[in-house]
Nucleic acid binder design. Structure first.
Length: 259
DNA sequence: GCATATGTTATGAA
DNA sequence: TTTCATAACATATG
């Protein structure tokens, strides 16, 4: 699930329920998912401290806690779950923060990709690695500058987190569908006008998805059709084409989308 | 048993 | 140097 809009939803969820509250207890339920600290160290950094407001960069959720940051990456199956009364855990809960006032915030992750990092202030990159600017507030000229001179496929470029952060497989397909660009298109073969359309599609898709806290599976979104093996283009009804592109399962409309 | 799945990373080759 | 394909990671589902 988690790409930029999903993490944006987790951020809202966090800020609504957990931001500003004091940590009463830290339960490491799967120590392998706390990637760069031991449980006691994590507890020492968090317990008794107040959680700041969460930020997001790309697919990362960043929670400031005094002189540290808690960094969460959700892999393919991660999410945040808030329980107001601290009841009933889920088997895939990997970390639980019990908060003053009685609730519990849980990091849940079935497949165990991703994880949790503890960073000292200013050392975020040690955990996240280099990240490009967030895809959400990328201006048109920023995007053009980033893409200029790239000879590889445009889908690969959109998903490259070092280039721009936050776009994954589903979102890249959605954006390319909206911009009417074939995911196999080489970036340097796209005209400036089409790159402008790509920027517009990126902006609008993220804006609309963020409002929902996910990439919607609505009928007028590609994502609404791509799970159906007989899925059709919501614009023109042509049967979607599916193939591996940039190493990922891609779906696109062979009629609307051109190289 | 096989294939597939929203992510990242390492590796070797083109 | 850049880009690409592939495998690996771990787990569930069809």
């Amino acid at each position: 699930m988690p790409e930029l809009p999903d993490v944006q939803g987790f951020r809202r969820h966090f800020n609504r329920h957990a931001a500003g509250k004091r940590v009463r207890g830290v339960e490491v339920l799967d120590r392998a998912l706390v990637r760069n600290a031991r449980a006691p160290q994590l507890a020492r950094a968090l317990e008794g401290r107040e959680l700041g407001r969460a930020e997001r960069h790309g697919k990362w959720l960043i929670v400031p806690v005094r002189d540290h940051e808690l960094l969460l990456h959700f892999g393919m199956t991660g999410l945040l779950a808030w329980s107001g009364d601290g009841g009933e855990r889920h088997p895939h809960d990997r970390l639980e923060l019990r908060l003053a006032g009685g609730g519990a915030l849980r990091y849940r992750n079935m497949r165990r990709f991703g994880g949790i990092w503890l960073a000292e202030a200013g050392r975020r990159e040690d955990a996240t690695g280099p990240l490009g600017p967030d895809a959400m507030d990328l201006g048109r000229d920023d995007l053009l500058r980033l893409l200029r001179g790239r000879r590889g496929g445009v889908k690969a470029a959109l998903m490259d987190q070092e280039l721009l952060a936050g776009v994954g497989n589903i979102l890249s397909d959605e954006v390319l569908w909206r911009a009417r660009i074939d995911p196999r298109a080489r970036t340097d073969r796209l005209s400036e006008r089409r790159l402008h359309e790509l920027h517009e599609a990126l902006r609008e898709t993220i804006r609309a998805a963020n409002r929902r806290g996910r990439i919607p599976g609505d009928e007028d979104w590609l994502t609404g059709a791509r799970d159906d093996p007989d899925g059709r283009c919501p614009r023109c009804g042509t049967k979607l084409r599916r193939e591996k592109v940039a190493g990922r399962s891609a779906a696109w409309c062979p009629r609307c989308q051109r190289r």
